[in-house]
Design a protein around this nucleic acid. Structure first.
Lengths: 369, 369
DNA sequence: TGTTAGCACTCTTCTTGAACGAGTGCTAAC
DNA sequence: GTTAGCACTCGTTCAAGAAGAGTGCTAACA
C-alpha cells in the first residue's frame, strides 16, 4: 500500500491533534480539523489503511487512533515545521544566560534549568568531556610534607584538582623543575594524547633528578586520565508528572531513578552518533532510546560547543507526544546562543571583565590622581 | 487526664503496629498484639482517652487509629528502643565506606547512596561548610596574560578554584611575593575570620608593589567568601514511591522538586540546632520540619565531623511512619564510622593502611574528646 | 469500680449493572 | 471513490447493594 498525499495529511492531522490533546483522535475530529473536506467515513477508511501500515493504532476497539513510534518517526523526519517563532520567547532565555558564568558548572546548571522551565520537560546536560580538549596549564604545589596538590587547567578554563601523596619530600628546586618539565611537555596536548610513550620520555628526562619524581609523574598521569567522571546536570525532573502517561508510580519511579543515577544517562549523552543531522540534533522516539527506563518517552539531544573543541550534549526528555517542533527549535536556539556567547573566544569571564573595567577605570583614575 | 502506664503501652502498641503495616490499627488487633490481656472493648475505651489527649486519631469514623504527630513525638522521645542489632547489617556499610575516597565529594555521594539503600528512604548530605574550617594553602598562578588562577586548599583537603581576571600582567616576581604575602597572612585562618581589617593590612603591605595587587587581593577575598554554595548530595529519592502516603502525584512531585532544587534542603541541613541531643541527632516529625513540602514526612538529621572542624549534616527523609529506631541507629553508626575513619587524622588518601591496622576501639563513641 | 460481651451503627471498599457516549466497521446507495 | 446510516464494541460514570472492619454505647459481671 502506498502512502499518498492524502494519507499523509490525515496522519499529520492525527499526530498534531494528539500532540495537543493527548487523547485518541477520532475520524470525526479529523473530518472537521483538516481542510480536506472529507466525511468522517472516508477518514475512517483511510485510517484503517494507516493502521495497517503501522503508523497509528487504537488503544482499544472503538477508540480513536494514536500515533505509533513509526508514525512519530515519520512526522519528525518529514512533517515537522520548526517553530521559529519560539525565538521570540527565547529572548528571555538569552537574557538569563547573558549573565555569563565564570564557572562552566554554573553555566550548565543554568542552561538545564532554563530549558526545563521553557519546555516543561525534563532536561539534562553533560559537561564537556575533558579528554578531547587540551591542557593549558599544570601546576604542582606542596601542600604539606607528604602531599602535593596538582592543579590542571584545561582549555575553556575547566579546572581539575588532585591531591597526590608522595613518599619523601621534594625540594623546592625539584618541584620547580618538575613544573617546567610538565608544562613544556604536556601543554597543548589533549588528555587522550598523553600516552605511555610521552610519559616515558618525561620520566627519562626526570630520571636524572630522582626516582620520586618518576613516581609523581605516574600518579599525575593516572590522575589526569582517571578524571573522567562525566558530570551530568539535570533539571525539571518533576515535569514528568505533567504527563499522565508517564506519571504512574511505576514509570515515574524508574524515570526519577534514572535521573538521579546520572551515569545511566551517560549512554544517551555520550554517544554523539554522527547521525543524519549535521546540526547534531538527534531524536529518539520510544523504543529507540538506548535507556530502557525511557521507552515510553521521547528524547531529543543536541551537542553544543563552547569553543576549543569542548563539546557536550544537552538532552530533553518528555512524553512521546512531546512538542517536537518546539523542542528542536529551542535546542537550535540554545545551540546558537551558546555558540554566540562562548564559541568565538576561548576566554571566560570576558564580559564580566568588561563590566569590571568600567569600575576599574574609575579606580585607576583615582589611583593616578 | 493522665497518661498512665497502660495507656502508654497501648499507645506504643498502636504506633509499633502502624509503623509496620501502615494501616489504621483497631482495638481488636491491640487486644491480641499486646501482653496486657485486655479485651478489645477495654482497649477501645482507652483509645478514646488517647484520642482525646491528641496522641492518636481516626482517619474517619469507624476506622482504626493512627498516631498523630504528637503521638510520634512521644514515641520518639520516650519509647524508642534503638536497634543496636542493626550494627550487624551495618558491617557491610562499613566495608563499602572503607575504600576510602580521596575526594570528599565522592565520599559523601557514597554515604548518601549507602544510607538510601540501607534504609529505603531518601537521603541527603551536605558537604562540610568551608567557612568554619581553616585555610591551609593558597596559590595564585598565571594562566594567561589576563587571568590568574587562585587555588585555595582548606583543611581536610577541600580544594576551591577561582579564575580571577586581571587588568595588567603581573611579573613573576610580584606574583611570588603576593603568594608569600597571602600565605603568611591567611594561613590557618578560617574563612569567617578573613575580614576587612585583615584585608586592609595585606593591602597596605602590598601597596608598595602596585595597585593591581590590591585589586587581586580584593577579588580573591571576594572569591573566598562567595565560595559558599553549600553543596548537597542526595540519593534514593525514588524511595518515596515505596510509601503510598507520599506517592501520590501532588506530594511526590513536590518532594522530588525539593530534592532537585537542593538549596531548598539547605534550611534543614544548615541549622545545627544545638538541640536536646548532644549527639547531634534531630528528629522532625510532620509539621515540625522547616521545609514546607515535607510536612507529610519525617526527617532525621545528624551532624557528622570529618576532623578539623569540618562539620556537615546528613538527613534522612521518609514517611511519618518511618522506622525511627532503625534510622536513628543507622545514623549513629555512620557517625561513628566516619569519626573512626576520618576523625582522628586530617590527612587523606594516605592512611588507608593505617586504618586497616587500626580496625579498632579507638572509638570514643558519644564521649566528646 | 474497672472490665467485658453484645449489638447497633457508621463508614469504606468492592461489586454489579445500567445508561451513556465516543468511535468504529460495514453495507448500501450516490 | 465518497458518503450516509446503522449496528456494535468498549470505556466511563453513576447508583445501589453487600460485605467487612471497627467503633461507641449499654448493660451485665467480678
Amino acid at each position: 500500500m502506498e502512502l499518498d498525499e492524502r494519507k499523509k495529511k490525515i496522519l499529520q492531522a492525527v499526530i498534531r491533534n494528539y500532540l495537543e490533546t493527548g487523547e485518541p483522535v477520532g475520524s470525526r475530529t479529523i473530518s472537521k480539523y483538516t481542510d480536506l473536506n472529507l466525511s468522517s467515513a472516508t477518514i475512517r477508511n483511510e485510517m484503517v489503511d494507516l493502521e495497517e501500515m503501522g503508523y497509528i493504532f487504537q488503544p482499544h476497539t472503538s477508540a480513536g487512533r494514536i500515533p505509533s513510534d513509526k508514525g512519530y518517526r515519520l512526522y519528525v523526519d518529514t512533517m515537522m515545521e520548526e517553530k521559529e517563532r519560539e525565538m521570540v520567547e527565547m529572548k528571555e532565555m538569552k537574557e538569563m544566560l547573558v549573565e555569563r558564568q565564570n564557572k562552566i558548572e554554573t553555566l550548565l546548571k543554568q542552561v538545564a534549568r532554563v530549558l526545563a522551565q521553557n519546555t516543561q520537560y525534563a532536561t539534562m546536560i553533560s559537561a564537556p568531556r575533558a579528554k578531547r580538549s587540551k591542557l593549558k596549564f599544570i601546576q604542582l604545589s606542596r601542600v604539606d610534607a607528604c602531599q602535593l596538590l596538582a592543579v590542571i587547567v584545561i582549555e575553556g578554563n575547566v579546572i581539575k584538582n588532585n591531591i597526590l601523596p608522595v613518599e619523601e619530600e621534594l625540594s623546592d628546586e625539584t618541584l620547580l623543575k618538575l613544573n617546567i618539565l610538565l608544562n613544556t611537555h604536556l601543554n597543548g596536548l589533549s588528555i587522550d594524547e598523553i600516552n605511555l610513550a610521552m610519559i616515558a620520555v618525561m620520566k627519562q628526562q626526570a630520571g636524572i633528578h630522582s626516582t620520586i619524581v618518576s613516581e609523581v609523574i605516574d600518579a599525575l598521569a593516572e590522575a589526569i586520565r582517571a578524571e573522567e567522571d562525566l558530570e551530568i546536570y539535570t533539571s525539571g525532573t518533576n515535569n514528568i508528572f505533567r504527563y499522565p502517561e508517564l506519571a504512574d508510580q511505576q514509570k515515574a519511579s524508574e524515570l526519577i531513578n534514572t535521573f538521579e543515577e546520572k551515569q545511566l544517562l551517560g549512554e544517551l549523552l555520550q554517544e554523539t552518533r554522527s547521525g543524519e543531522e549535521e546540526t547534531g540534533i538527534q531524536v529518539y522516539i520510544g523504543e529507540e532510546t538506548p535507556v530502557q527506563s525511557m521507552k515510553d518517552c521521547s528524547v531529543v539531544t543536541a551537542t553544543y560547543e563552547l569553543g576549543g573543541g569542548m563539546k557536550g550534549t544537552i538532552g530533553i526528555v518528555g512524553p512521546k507526544r512531546m512538542d517536537y517542533d518546539k523542542v528542536v527549535g529551542t535546542l537550535r536556539t540554545i545551540q546558537s546562543q551558546l555558540d554566540e556567547l562562548y564559541g568565538g573566544n576561548k576566554e571566560e569571564g570576558h564580559s564580566m571583565e568588561e563590566e569590571h573595567s568600567m569600575e576599574e577605570e574609575h579606580s585607576m583614575e583615582e589611583g593616578h590622581s
